[in-house]
């Protein structure tokens, strides 16, 4: 439920609120971007995913 009543405070603080909003969005974008880059840097990984994959099974030869 949105707050409908406006107060003159909302107008006075508009610049601050907008600025803080933009900073938060930018921060989220940076953390997300860093996560993507860091995960990509690990390279392709292969794990067990409940499917039998012969290449992961050690064979005694």
């Amino acid at each position: 439920m949105a707050i409908r009543a406006t107060h003159e405070l909302h107008e006075r603080r508009l610049s601050r609120n907008r600025g803080v909003g933009l900073v938060l969005v930018a921060f989220i974008a940076i953390v997300f971007g860093l996560t993507v880059v860091k995960v990509q840097n690990i390279g392709l990984t292969e794990g067990f995913d409940h499917v039998v994959r012969p290449e992961l099974i050690l064979r005694a030869e």
């Binding site: 006075r12 603080r13 610049s15 601050r16 907008r18 600025g19 803080v20």
Partner: peptide, 10 residues
């Protein structure tokens, strides 16, 4: 007067 975002940047 109310501090604006720019004042915090300053």
């Amino acid at each position: 007067r109310e501090a604006e975002f720019g004042d915090y940047v300053a």
